[in-house]
Design a protein around this nucleic acid. Structure first.
Length: 951
RNA sequence: GCAGGGGUGCCCGAGCGGUCAAAGGGGCCGGACUUAAACUCCGGUGGCAAGGCCUUCGCAGGUUCGAAUCCUGCCCCCUGCACCA
């Protein structure tokens, strides 16, 4: 077959589309498989990261179709967001136009790759028939008390002109533009995600996410068990509330630290000599840049506020400080300081010469008065509490006792703190879902009634570079409305929703994408979402944000009765990085733009080397999918991507490997061609090929089922081929066998290289489209083990002979021209059979092996005794370095031995083939004793390991 | 600092107690085919050696009859979080 990838691929893509091959509906008679890739933002054209993501997903979708599943595999676009708005400003258009242009482009790229999406389910979140349902869901969340509007200090990005959620701030910088984030106080809309903190955390134990993703989420939620403890201020009505995870150290408190922004600070020191120092510290912290903050980590600073706090359990007065290391937004923004048992407090106490007190022992029985040379942060029995009830208690017992005492005094209680904050939802941007709320002077804030939805984004807005702020706010027709409650004049909310909201439930919309009466139908979603999305593939960058929001949302809709499942994603696969070579300076440990290839390091001037680095714009080491498609076609790229690395592993782009994969495509095509031109001539290799097909299919099913695509492709695109080659090499040429082999093989080719596979399917006269075939399980035939083992035996003999050949050449004068193979003498084979039988009965060879041997008839032969003993030991117990053969023989080998394999017969029957494989004129094979003992090999001959002599 | 994941032959990568000098691929070398190959096929690719032995899976120890695989310590790399009380 002539291979024109462009023609073949376009033709089959059209055929699949015409046949609606990938369109699915709920069908409870079949197991479902929901395969989903993380929602792409349509940024123009597809990049290699996308190609890897979708090639993995498509292979899995196609595999599960072959396995008989009803596969839901949809595609759509997360199309709200700033880039389209910025592009619209640049070209003086509307983000809607930009968005749809980009969607058309990326979709065309995806279609060229041959991905098997059910395109009827296509959706774009910026289309009103999607965001309508965002608004409906918002009303639902509001009714359930999960929406809240409150003043809050928010992270503000000046460049993006909007607020950011905590999750969207990285190192105090905007996740999108990298500009430093500033704090502002604003009225904002929140979703009360913290209502689900515990479930979000606890359910992580039960879901199949990669460990690192779970760790990141746990870390992000940051649940700490501890106690709230109130420290009254001496000579004042004020009380300092603190949070601690170590109530067992309360008797070691020697000062209390407030964050400089804490409202009590000013109250405590106003008008005193201490005020100036405090306000200096506060201002310093307020205008601290990220860089300075990191430097500051090393320097713990504090100022005394001139007042003292009272330890509620022992009445002691301890000084109150403001400290730059206390975070205002975590816990209460105030910390009880225990320098003896907290390293940070220890450092602070040393610097300001505050008492360091031991109140825990490292080991029971230690000296309670032993000085501390650093903080002991472990758990140990309490000492020096001054109260009998506590000394000696340790760990949880100690904590519980202290909490009980605090609760008894009314000066504290056990509590739990979370690092997780509510989801700040509102954005002061245009290109997002309008929040369906109305501000009425008379009635306050009123939700838009469901019947009045959707609140649509106006299309008659012109964007320009000069504009600042949110165009919605100045769009009178949008803003001015009437109050649904009093019908008076009112104004619409002009904030729009964070785009992560859109992607928090899209996987449920895909299940029922054309529903125009509700976000989705419950029965439909319960069918597809049972146990969650079966395979969710995407990047690690969503480990916290998207995956946490989506989990929260699914639980909220579950509690609203909209769906049954609580965890949206059953199995998550985070694809590894895609790397490509980039110039690298080893001395500076820096990577540079590809423009520097072959040049010198811009920093130190030394010649640059090369290193694999994450593919990206900044280094310019990207590969264009379009170029590669034009050169090699989709199938080659897909094969390269899947065979290059397993989905979760990092992967290096390599032009030479890509070319090698393209050659592999040609080799497979040649093999299929050859299989189509066989004669009707059954031969001894037919059974072997059939057995290999069955064994390979089993291995392939297992690998693919585990998403070990590299292993799967290795079987389908490499091992099947080399088995075919071996079959031919061994003289196989039967039409019926070849045809059966192709029927089994071609479907295995389709997950990775669907276009050529479909072409082959047609060439071989396969029924219908391969894309919709269900591949029957080939199972296993009883004789397979023995058939495969016989061929393996032959190959092993060839391998050993090849290994020996080099040696033989050095010890033989003249050219080697023939090989004599002596197979093991009959009594050795009988011993082997005996050993295998005993082993299967659980015989203890160490304890009874020798006695058994001595009881055998053959052992009476004194001349053979030494050899019999050696052979028996080699078979059963083995030596120090090598285990007995009964432990190393494969099932196949045991079968061969037990069935009394005629080794010499097999070798003699294949003498011609062996001679060719070993590059000699002739090969002679006989059992030891049936011919001359050439080169003394008779003694070496062992069952399945014949003596081989080169002459 | 904390957490998660890693370090395997020239390179990429599998293996995770004995069948392991270690799958598979890339590269390189040799042979066959061919007018010629950048195609394809076959073989080789740690060292010595008539079947055995020595050295090797980040470094150093340990457990075991036996360790790439298990344990301890150390070094290095990647990823995330980071003054979280």
């Amino acid at each position: 077959m002539a291979y024109d990838a462009q023609e073949v691929e376009a033709r089959w893509q059209k055929a699949w589309a015409d046949a609606g091959a990938f369109e699915v509906e709920v069908d409870s008679s079949k197991p479902k498989f929901y395969c989903l890739e993380m929602f792409p933002y349509p940024s123009g054209s597809m990049h290699m990261g996308h190609v890897r993501n979708y090639s993995i997903g498509d292979a899995m979708a196609r595999f599960h179709r072959l396995m008989g599943s009803n596969v839901l595999y949809p595609m759509g676009y997360d199309s709200f967001g700033m880039p389209a708005e910025n592009a619209a400003k640049k070209e003086g258009g509307h983000p809607h136009t930009v968005t749809h242009r980009n969607i058309a482009s990326i979709r065309a790229d995806q279609e060229r790759m041959g991905y098997s999406y059910d395109w009827r389910r296509f959706l774009a979140t910026s289309d009103v028939d999607y965001y309508h349902w965002n608004q409906r869901m918002f009303l639902m969340l509001n009714e359930r008390g999960l929406v809240e509007r409150r003043m809050a200090p928010v992270n503000w990005c000046v460049d993006c002109d909007t607020v950011l959620a905590n999750e969207q701030v990285k190192n105090n910088r905007c996740w999108r533009c990298g500009l430093e984030v500033v704090q502002r106080d604003m009225a904002q809309w929140f979703l009360r995600m913290t209502e689900y903190s515990d479930e979000l955390l606890d359910e992580l134990d039960n879901i199949a996410f990669p460990e690192n993703v779970k760790a990141m989420q746990r870390n992000w939620i940051g649940r700490s068990h501890g106690a709230h403890i109130d420290f009254p201020v001496a000579g004042s009505e004020a009380v300092i509330g603190t949070f601690t995870t170590r109530p067992d150290t309360i008797f070691g408190v020697t000062f209390v630290t407030l964050s400089p922004e804490h409202p009590l600070c000013e109250e405590l020191c106003a008008g005193t000599e201490w005020e100036a120092d405090w306000s200096k510290l506060r201002d310093e912290c307020a205008r601290m840049s990220e860089f300075e903050r990191i430097n500051m980590l090393k320097e713990k600073k504090g100022v005394f506020l001139g007042r003292h706090a009272i330890n509620p359990l022992n009445g002691e007065e301890v000084p109150i400080y403001a400290g730059n290391f206390v975070v205002a937004s975590y816990g209460t923004g105030a910390v009880m300081a225990v320098p003896g048992h907290d390293q940070r407090d220890y450092d602070f106490a040393e610097r300001y010469d505050i008492e360091i007190r031991r109140v825990l022992l490292e080991r029971a029985g230690d000296d309670p008065d032993a000085a501390l040379s650093g903080a002991f942060e472990g758990y140990g029995p309490m000492v020096n509490s001054g109260r009998d009830a506590f000394d000696g208690l340790a760990g949880d017992e100690a904590k519980d006792a202290v909490i009980a005492a605090l609760e008894g005094h009314g000066s504290g209680y056990g509590t739990i703190e979370y690092r997780l904050k509510d989801w700040l939802l509102s954005r002061q941007r245009f290109w997002g879902t309008p929040i369906p709320m109305i501000h009425c002077e008379a009635c306050g804030i009123v939700p838009v009634p469901a019947a009045d939805l959707p609140v649509e984004l106006p299309l008659d807005v012109t964007f320009s570079e000069e504009q600042s702020g949110n165009p919605l706010a100045s769009h009178d027709a949008f803003v001015n409305t009437t109050c649904p409650s009093c019908e008076g004049a009112a104004k619409r909310e002009t904030d729009t929703m964070d785009t992560f909201y859109d992607s928090s439930w899209y996987f449920m919309r895909f299940c029922d994408a054309s529903n125009d009466a509700a976000p989705f139908d419950r029965e439909t979603v319960d069918y597809w979402m049972d146990d969650g999305v079966d395979l969710y593939i995407g990047g690690i960058e969503h480990a916290v944000m998207h995956l946490l929001y989506a989990r929260f949302f699914t639980k909220a809709t579950r509690d609203a009765g909209m769906n049954a499942v609580g965890e949206p994603f059953g199995r998550l696969i985070c694809q590894g990085m895609l790397n490509a070579p980039a110039p690298f300076c080893a001395d500076c440990n820096a990577e540079y733009h590809v423009d520097n290839f072959g040049g010198d390091c811009p920093t130190c001037g030394k010649p640059l080397g090369t290193r694999s680095a994450k593919m990206g714009k900044s280094l310019g080491n990207t590969i264009s999918p379009g170029d590669m498609l034009g050169r090699y076609g989709a199938d080659t790229i897909r094969l390269f991507i899947l065979f290059g690395a397993n989905p979760e592993a990092g992967m290096d782009w390599s032009d030479s490997a890509l070319e090698a994969n393209h050659r592999q495509m040609h080799v497979i095509i040649d093999a299929v061609d050859s299989a189509l031109s066989m004669d009707d001539s059954p031969g001894p290799m037919d059974d072997w090929l059939n057995a290999r097909l069955r064994a390979n299919q089993r291995a392939w099913r297992e690998a693919m089922g585990n998403v070990s695509l590299r292993e799967g492709v290795m079987v389908s695109h490499f091992e099947m081929l080399s088995d075919w080659n071996w079959y031919r090499h061994r003289g196989g040429c039967d039409r019926a066998t070849a045809s059966a082999f192709l029927k089994g093989w071609i479907p295995m080719l389709s997950p990775a290289t669907p276009h050529v596979a479909e072409e082959f399917w047609q060439m071989t006269g396969g029924e219908g489209l391969l894309a919709t075939l269900v591949l029957p399980d080939a199972g296993e035939s009883v004789g397979d083990t023995a058939v495969l083992a016989r061929e393996t035996y032959l190959r092993n003999v060839i391998d050993s002979a090849r290994n020996l050949r080099g040696l033989a050449e050095r010890h033989t004068e003249g050219e080697i021209s023939r090989v004599v193979i002596q197979t093991a003498v009959a009594w050795k084979a009988e011993l082997a059979q005996d050993a295998i039988r005993l082993d299967s009965e659980g015989f203890d060879f160490k304890a009874q092996g020798q006695a058994h041997l001595q009881s055998l008839e053959i052992f009476k032969n004194e001349a053979l005794r030494g050899e019999i003993f050696q052979t028996w030991m080699a078979m059963t117990t083995g030596s120090k370095k090598k285990r007995g053969r009964i432990h190393t023989w494969s099932d196949g080998e045991r079968t061969l031995i037990s069935s009394g394999l005629d080794e010499a017969g097999i070798l003699a029957a294949n003498a011609g083939f062996l001679a060719a494989a070993l590059d000699v004129d002739s090969v002679e094979a006989y059992s030891v004793g049936d011919g001359e003992d050439v080169a003394g090999k008779a003694r070496v001959a062992f069952p399945l390991e014949p003596g081989i002599a080169f002459l």
